[in-house]
Design a protein around this nucleic acid. Sequence first.
DNA 1: CGCTACTTTGACGTTTCTCAAATCCTGTGG
DNA 2: CCACAGGATTTGAGAAACGTCAAAGTAGCG
Lengths: 259, 259
Amino acid sequence: MPKTSLTQINSQVPATTAQGAPRCGECPIRYRAVCAQCETDELKVLEQIKFYRSYEPGQPIIWEGDRMDFVGSVVTGVASLTQTLEDGRTQVVGLLLPSDFLGRPGRERAAYNATAATKVVLCCFRRKPFDDLMRETPHIAHRLLEMTLDELDAAREWMLLLGRKTAREKIASFIAIVARREAALQKRRPAGRMELELPLTREAMADYLGLTLETVSRQVSALKRDGVIELKGKRGVILPDFSRIVDESGDDADGGMVD
Amino acid sequence: MPKTSLTQINSQVPATTAQGAPRCGECPIRYRAVCAQCETDELKVLEQIKFYRSYEPGQPIIWEGDRMDFVGSVVTGVASLTQTLEDGRTQVVGLLLPSDFLGRPGRERAAYNATAATKVVLCCFRRKPFDDLMRETPHIAHRLLEMTLDELDAAREWMLLLGRKTAREKIASFIAIVARREAALQKRRPAGRMELELPLTREAMADYLGLTLETVSRQVSALKRDGVIELKGKRGVILPDFSRIVDESGDDADGGMVD
DNA sequence: CGCTACTTTGACGTTTCTCAAATCCTGTGG
DNA sequence: CCACAGGATTTGAGAAACGTCAAAGTAGCG
């Protein structure tokens, strides 16, 4: 089952490196990222070694097997981690949303491909100094453990989806997750009528959900036909009632929102 | 190791608690578990708060939503972590092998069901003292982060399997993993002719691989028909040539053995 | 030696995939 | 402002993989 190869030909363009990095105190992910528990003096150290990079949609951030010379946090945008079988079958194994951490301390080489799904801004640290910092700054190590445990929970929830949900439930689950994230950004509870943008193409959704892009498209159409969602252009989705998409997702109650 | 009476197999019976816990220095998982990097004095502290529990095959260790009053390491045996949808569809989201850690520090309630797949011996710590210990003992916190990152990698590799592999590849991958573990226990490279015991029933395998038990059975039969494996009783498997099962698994080379 | 639970096998149904073609956005250039 | 190009998306028809329901066969234990 060969797959059409990735579309982005303009991928060799180097990422932008911003010079004037904003102060950590004003960072939008200040209280959720790996630096969340840092004191002001610890932030100062981070501020000295951090630098920003941005990536255009479709642009690769790092390739499996490459040397990782930096680690970092997603400040804005969405990136996807993917793994592939040698015949080209691809699985998205993680979505990196704002405040999520990219890279593994102490690891030389990337274990996955990371690709920008939307425009992405990354707050980066060179790996070596960051590794040293981690050993000396319990706040960072502790927060990273917490975040890693959360990611592990998310990965396991995704295993349940991949192994046991129907195509329709998979699509509904994905839309519900995006809707919850949307609500979280606006500090509201997800409920009632909602409008959102899907951060992934149909193909990327398929690779995330373990489906083909045709099946994704068909199930999206089916949910629309059944009045669970409305479509607005290619990426826009309107939920007349959030609870209906949750009902379709196969989860109990408001499914899987830990914390 | 104390013996549980064999009449307890049907599960509501409380787990045995051993009194004379062996010394950590002689523990078979001394250098791989969460305590791997501990110094002798740190081990002494652990030794004072640890206790053992054992479980018979099929016996539940903890149920999703239950209060977790302890965390611990698998000393011997295999346990499975499962999640379920309310209509009963079940997915195994993790296998706990010797040295793997059960429970999440700082979390009150279990996020998954844990069930003994074989006879299991657990080295337990009450959660509260362990949480405190973690804050004071960087060696433990650091090792736990390392182990969690490894588990995350394993979960992501499993996502690739669940989302993209065929039933035949899934079965082959599972057998290859068991074979690798078998080899690791004997400190050999997996290669050539190998004999092993599957630690799971067909149904548990199905729940691990995102299949039905009938499909598992059929694909096992197919691999046997094709000479990739031979069967020896219900659980015994013989690999005439380890590389053949790897070829069938869909992975490149020796697939996914990080370390 | 006979249960009992686990496993295998068969026939058939359903879901999802594959291959193919049409249609729709979005950004670009006239 | 509109027409157009080109990727992204939708839709269709048929095939393959996997699931479901049902029945028969084994291993292993007492």
